[in-house]
């Protein structure tokens, strides 16, 4: 304690996430169990936040293992923001690096999908691209057109059956027969419901290019590069139906 008059916040904070740390000096004697209330509130609160944010991972790991892992994660990666529905952005990386989980390499991508799902759920509202606004354009203008991704739109490409595992683990699908089957996923939220779709790798390439502000021509090129049999019309229909892009079409590169 530097200042005699005011106990240091740093000392109080330092012991909150460290179960082995001594009681902060300024706390009145005999306060070990009392201070532990704060420690418990912080730890349990953050573990609960991870439970709420990663229900599929919790189901996949089982409650006991998940709670243990979540506790060490919370101690090593406490949140920086009080917007707890975004907490755990790096949880996927920790799952990927965990030796014990090496036999379950799909877990990290499932966690990434859960994180993207919540991002989409809380994303800004925006008007989605309407079919007529594309069909009104002449062919050359269409080629040079650029779209802006809807704030909720996200893409994920996984070497595992991430969508099937995610869906099954949220209690909505069947058991997954082959977890090692690669899947690409598109997340959108045209209104209130987050929609998660499996898409082909070439559609993923096409949408990723569009989302990065490529022209429709450049993006279609990416789709054909990924697969010469790229079904362009089907991909355009899917992106419109899913509400992946915003209403406004531009021809400017910015």
């Amino acid at each position: 304690m530097q200042d005699n008059a005011t106990p240091s916040e740093a000392a109080f904070a330092a012991a909150l996430l460290d179960p082995a740390a001594a009681l902060p000096q300024a706390v009145k004697r005999g306060g070990q169990r009392r201070y532990a209330v704060y420690r418990n509130n912080v730890t349990v609160g953050l573990v609960r936040a991870l439970e709420a944010n990663f229900p599929a991972i919790r189901r996949l790991l089982g409650e006991t293992y998940f709670t243990g892992l979540a506790r060490t994660f919370a101690q090593a990666h406490p949140p920086a923001s009080p917007l707890l529905f975004h907490y755990g952005e790096d949880f996927a990386d920790v799952l990927a690096a965990e030796d014990d989980l090496a036999g379950y390499p799909y877990l990290a991508d499932v966690a990434r999908l859960e994180h993207l799902w919540r991002r989409a759920h809380h994303a800004r509202d925006a008007k989605v691209l309407e079919p007529n606004s594309l069909s009104a354009l002449d062919p050359e203008t269409l080629m040079a057109s650029r779209l802006r991704p809807h704030p909720a739109c996200a893409l994920l490409s996984s070497s595992y059956a991430v969508h099937a595992i995610f869906t099954a683990s949220r209690g909505e699908g069947d058991a997954v027969p082959d977890a090692a089957q690669a899947q690409c996923v598109l997340l959108t939220r045209p209104h209130f419901d987050v929609e998660v779709r499996v898409i082909s790798p070439e559609t993923h390439a096409f949408l990723q290019a569009l989302a990065a502000r490529a022209t429709l021509a450049e993006a279609a090129e990416q789709g054909f590069a990924a697969n010469p049999r790229f079904a362009l019309a089907a991909a355009i229909r899917l992106m419109v139906e899913a509400g992946a892009f915003q209403h406004k079409i531009t021809q400017d590169p910015s």
Binding site: L60, T64, A175, A180
Partner: peptide, 24 residues
Amino acid sequence: TSKVDYQGNSWKYVEKGTCTSMML
């Protein structure tokens, strides 16, 4: 919270999660 979480850092895997049923 009135739910007491033991404060130590060790735990063991004792319960089966559904990931044991995912085939690789």
